[in-house]
Amino acid sequence: MDITIHSSFLPHTDADAALGFYRDALGFEVRNDVGYNGMRWLTVGPAGQPAVSVVLYPPEAEPGLTDEERRTVAEMMAKGTYARLLLAAEDVDATFARLAAGGVEVVEEPTDQPYGVRDCAVRDPAGNLLRIQQRR
């Protein structure tokens, strides 16, 4: 078996805001930007990890959702309980300082967690939770 993780998906509510966060604040490269019917799919990822991408997708485009389900997804995103991603960085404190200075929504400053990692947490503009932990 030689399966790798190719792409993982996070929902967005505003493609331009998502670009501002993932490209400008996190420093990810934009690998694809696909528009269809006024909706956009953005493929982004860290330059040092060309084989792994995150696709930022419009959740309302998912076929087979009822209006009620679509509404629930939007509510869960807004209240911050829908999706998350775990990242790692060589220097969590420096990374956090840069993000905070850039005005991103801070959830938790760099902290030594009782479960053994040093990490911080921020939200992307859609409300997804991004934890960034110290690489070891």
Binding site: E75, A78, K79, G80, E105, E108
Partner: peptide
């Protein structure tokens, strides 16, 4: 309002 609530919870 949900966005504000998320900020409160965070």
């Amino acid at each position: 309002d949900l966005v504000l609530l998320r900020q409160v919870r965070d």
